[in-house]
Amino acid sequence: MKMNKKSLLIGIIIGMGILGMANLVFASIGGNDKPANPLGVEVIVEAGDTLWSIADRYNEKAGMSINELLFYIQRENKLDSAIVHPGDHIIIPIK
């Protein structure tokens, strides 16, 4: 089968379109584990802070009870326990 210039050009255009779409699909799957804009405010734990005191400070702004916010902070920040240390960065949801 002999390919003329027109068929070759159409094949190249279709191939580029398929590669472009595949690139968009794989780019949308991502690999970025950290959201660009976290949902909330970042708090840096200071000396004397506990997770309870931080939850107590922000619970009204977050629209949650202290216990709900405490649980949320632990879950969303992937904390193994309620122990935090000065310098830790945690995200607090603020509506």
Score class of each variant (00 low, 15 high):
21 M>Y: 11
23 N>L: 15
23 N>P: 04
24 L>G: 04
24 L>P: 03
25 V>Y: 14
26 F>L: 12
26 F>N: 12
26 F>P: 03
28 S>R: 11
28 S>H: 10
28 S>A: 10
29 I>A: 02
30 G>W: 04
32 N>Y: 13
32 N>G: 11
33 D>H: 06
34 K>T: 10
34 K>E: 09
36 A>G: 13
37 N>I: 15
38 P>A: 12
39 L>T: 14
39 L>N: 14
40 G>S: 02
40 G>K: 02
40 G>F: 07
43 V>N: 03
44 I>P: 00
44 I>D: 01
45 V>M: 04
45 V>N: 03
46 E>Q: 14
47 A>T: 06
48 G>R: 05
49 D>S: 04
49 D>N: 11
50 T>D: 06
50 T>H: 08
52 W>V: 08
52 W>R: 11
52 W>E: 10
52 W>T: 14
52 W>S: 14
53 S>Y: 07
53 S>V: 08
54 I>F: 03
56 D>R: 14
56 D>S: 15
59 N>E: 13
60 E>Q: 13
60 E>W: 03
60 E>H: 08
61 K>S: 14
62 A>R: 06
62 A>T: 09
63 G>T: 11
63 G>P: 12
63 G>K: 09
64 M>W: 00
64 M>V: 00
64 M>D: 04
64 M>Q: 03
65 S>G: 15
65 S>E: 05
65 S>L: 10
68 E>L: 01
68 E>T: 01
69 L>M: 00
70 L>K: 07
71 F>D: 07
71 F>Y: 11
71 F>Q: 08
71 F>S: 12
72 Y>W: 09
73 I>N: 00
73 I>C: 02
73 I>V: 05
74 Q>D: 03
75 R>C: 01
76 E>G: 00
77 N>S: 06
77 N>L: 02
78 K>A: 04
78 K>T: 05
79 L>C: 02
79 L>P: 05
80 D>H: 00
80 D>N: 06
81 S>Q: 06
81 S>C: 11
81 S>A: 12
82 A>V: 06
82 A>H: 09
83 I>T: 08
